[in-house]
Design a binder for these strands. Structure first.
Lengths: 266, 266
DNA sequence: TGTTGACACTTCCCCAACGGCAGGGTTTAT
DNA sequence: ATAAACCCTGCCGTTGGGGAAGTGTCAACA
């Protein structure tokens, strides 16, 4: 039994416009198209496909991905695609939850002060002189999402070779500009025995500040330091790095995390 | 001290392209633009504005909203805008959590059966004859988000006038097509005393099915019923309605909710 | 059988928030 | 002086359709 596009649209709660669009993308072709009038006709079997499309959309698949998914026969691949979207949803929820917390906190602040920005705007910046710091590190282009993975590798190595660490967990940003999806990042762990280090961060003058809270607004700390460096006549001598003093591994809420930011200067 | 666009971009981790775009939108105009070369120059004071923009973006404001926000002087309005975004984030997180649960459940199912759709695809549809049902109702164009609000009004009225209810909580969809943001919906509560009813749902033949789980995939139930109606030679006689048998008010997880769907037919 | 209203068709432009590229001018450091 | 780095404008592309214009078809009622 043939169903007109309008009927079909109502049955599966998808707009006529969307159906025509899916036809164009070859995502869901009508079972018959009238040769002369170009009227589209659907049938029973299309309905299930349409419901699958709706589902996959809910799960965060793009239309292109849905098309690939539908045509894919390998169960393993299908499974891993579903898993991937599950991860995506999870991390999205976690991300949003952190932001919600932050927003909550600044709303409280706003009620008192009437300002949005002085939540944590008073970074104390100072100059210190650091010593050479031997680290075990691994550098590559990566997304900030992959931090855990690379630290895992480092920790495994440390455990296997019984290296003594200093307890410093840090990351060095080698790009001038920071892109959270693809940056040249070196993750490292401070160690005591310089002979086993993969490299040594040379000591020297550094502008340093401490950032408290989740990483969502770390850029504000960076901005504050860069501004301070300009104002005080210093110049950036080497890529900046962060040392994670308190973080999720300490099992405390994100707003208690502490991160030190170091900018080697001259 | 004037800062070139590239420098400024690095300081606040915003792409040059984005800065030019914000200039075009008059969201963040450079403090100076060279008359001859059109080079943009920023300064100190722009930095804070830029950080505010980044924040508001995180909280879910669109650029147009940010512009309005920045130019708004009324604290009350600012406050309510922040609150609104907080609500938005919350409901987004809740929504995503429900979807995550669903996805989780179908992934488990997929491992066993290799299918994405038979999670709940076996709607049992039957024909029953309903009796006239007096209800107290309120009909308007609304978003599904506003359900709670209108039920609240109805319940208040019932409490005040000491009306005896049947315990049925239902909604009637008057539009042919369903748009979750703006539909002609009548929310109602079944009551015993017909003389106090705002209207009576006429009894008669109905195709009915029960949907178990959250409302995200209710459309699949609707589709199943509509298909069944077509297949069995019936015609839809009146707008369909849902009766919420088990829902969030019963304090059970969303996957245990039960909703009966009625389609009056002839 | 004619008419009329509902339904269908295509094509074009629009949204947000930029990214990428081409083609050309400017600054800065050596 | 010259090259490298930086900056400019302008145009097209992205996602998933919505809206409107202008025109052709279908089904039901008189």
């Amino acid at each position: 039994m043939l169903i007109s596009i309008g009927q079909f649209s109502k049955i599966c709660s998808v707009s006529v416009k969307a159906l025509r669009y899916y036809d164009k993308l070859s995502l869901l072709k009508p079972v018959k198209v009238d040769e002369f009038t170009s009227y589209r006709y659907y049938d029973e079997s299309q309905l299930e496909t349409m419901l699958v499309i709706n589902r996959l959309k809910r799960y965060g698949f793009s239309l292109a991905e849905i098309k690939a998914f539908i045509n894919e026969k390998d169960k393993g691949i299908l499974f891993s695609k579903l898993k991937e979207k599950e991860e995506g949803l999870k991390s999205d929820i976690m991300h949003k939850s952190l932001i919600l917390k932050e927003l909550d906190s600044i709303i409280k602040n706003f009620e008192r002060t009437g300002k949005i920005m002085d939540y944590q705007n008073n970074y104390k910046i100072s100059i210190t002189t650091t010593k050479d710091m031997p680290i075990l590190s691994s550098r590559q282009r990566m997304s900030v999402e992959d931090f855990g993975k690379y630290y895992g590798i480092l920790f495994t190595k440390i455990a296997r070779e019984a290296i003594t660490t200093t307890g410093d967990v840090l990351a060095i940003y080698h790009d001038d500009e920071f892109d959270e999806n693809d940056s040249d990042i070196e993750v490292g762990i401070g160690i005591k025995d310089a002979s086993k280090a993969s490299r040594v961060i040379s000591g020297g003058k550094c502008a340093v500040t401490m950032h408290k809270g989740s990483y969502a607004n770390l850029t504000e700390a960076y901005a504050a330091v860069v501004r301070w460096i300009n104002e005080n006549g210093y110049k950036i001598a080497a890529p900046p790095y962060e040392i994670y003093r308190i973080s999720h591994v300490d099992n405390v809420p994100a707003d208690e995390w502490e991160t030190d930011i170091y900018f080697p200067v001259k």
